[in-house]
């Protein structure tokens, strides 16, 4: 069991954000979390990354209680890939990725040869070596997302948490990013992403978790839980789901469009 969330509840003041959430994810799994804005996906991620304290229940990383782990130890097991953003200061793509190796060197030293090599490998692995000398803020959104993925790879954590990785990306970049996620899962990573795109969820992930009002409303393989009922329940939208290629693909189409 790579990561295990057991009976997790969290509230801001008297507003309950997460209610008794329990699930687990393991090696080779690509878990997609579906749910409307504000259902508690981000809070769940913050708890899983050790950024949010004061929850009840337990989160275990490789069997160890997250609460007892140091920031450094958590970083060795879980890497976070935020939505592509603009930091205050522009760094070269190479330096940006190199930051992921920080926990491998002592507080008063800087990444060395070994870390530089890791960066070269990660850039190669994601096919963005040609960008390494460019400024991070000068490349496209999709490229930035791949850079952040490379940064997570050099962190050498086996659990990757991605916050809506395909939001704000053009169509081609969405496919490239999802493809990389899929192949990373096949290589042995545990990948957990939040997303708003049901079609992609069906195509690329092996497990889907649907959340509403801080609770898990559905869990399972995409083929089992992907229904018109689920979409209506999650997003209050009427859709028809069409099955293609012997049910290897399912496509949602809004009813109002047909």
């Amino acid at each position: 069991m790579s990561i295990e969330v057991a009976n997790l509840s969290f509230s801001y003041g008297d507003r309950l954000i997460l209610k008794h959430v329990s699930f687990s994810a393991q090696k080779n799994q690509l878990l997609s979390i579906l749910g409307a804005n504000g259902v508690g996906k981000s809070t769940l991620f913050r708890c899983m990354l050790g950024l949010q304290k004061g929850y009840s229940g337990q989160i275990r990383l490789h069997g160890k209680n997250l609460n007892t782990m140091s920031i450094m130890d958590i970083a060795k097991s879980v890497a976070y890939i935020p939505q592509s953003h603009y930091p205050s200061f522009n760094y070269s793509v190479f330096d940006m990725v190199l930051m992921g190796t920080t926990h491998q060197v002592s507080v008063i030293s800087r990444p060395g040869k070994k870390q530089l090599q890791l960066v070269e490998q990660a850039l190669e692995r994601l096919g963005i070596s040609h960008l390494k000398k460019r400024g991070y803020t000068q490349i496209s959104g999709g490229e930035r997302q791949l850079v952040l993925m490379a940064r997570a790879l050099v962190q050498k954590a086996k659990i990757l948490i991605l916050d809506e990785p395909t939001a704000n990306l053009d169509y081609g970049n969405q496919i490239r990013v999802l493809n990389q996620m899929k192949s990373l899962a096949q290589e042995g990573y545990t990948i957990i992403q939040s997303t708003h795109n049901p079609d992609q969820t069906f195509l690329f992930s092996d497990t889907v978790m649907a959340m509403k009002d801080g609770e898990i409303t559905a869990w399972g393989q995409p083929g089992d839980i992907f229904t018109e009922e689920l979409i209506r329940n999650l997003y209050a939208a009427e859709v028809t789901i069409n099955s293609l290629y012997d049910d290897r693909v399912r496509v949602c189409i809004p009813k109002c469009a047909i």
């Binding site: 913050r46 990354l49 050790g50 950024l51 920031i71 450094m72 958590i74 970083a75 060795k76 879980v78 890497a79 976070y80 935020p82 930051m99 992921g100 920080t102 926990h103 940064r151 962190q155």
Partner: peptide, 10 residues
């Protein structure tokens, strides 16, 4: 802060 912490920096 959040990103720095997820990379192991207090």
């Amino acid at each position: 802060d959040d990103e720095a912490r997820t990379m192991g920096v207090n």
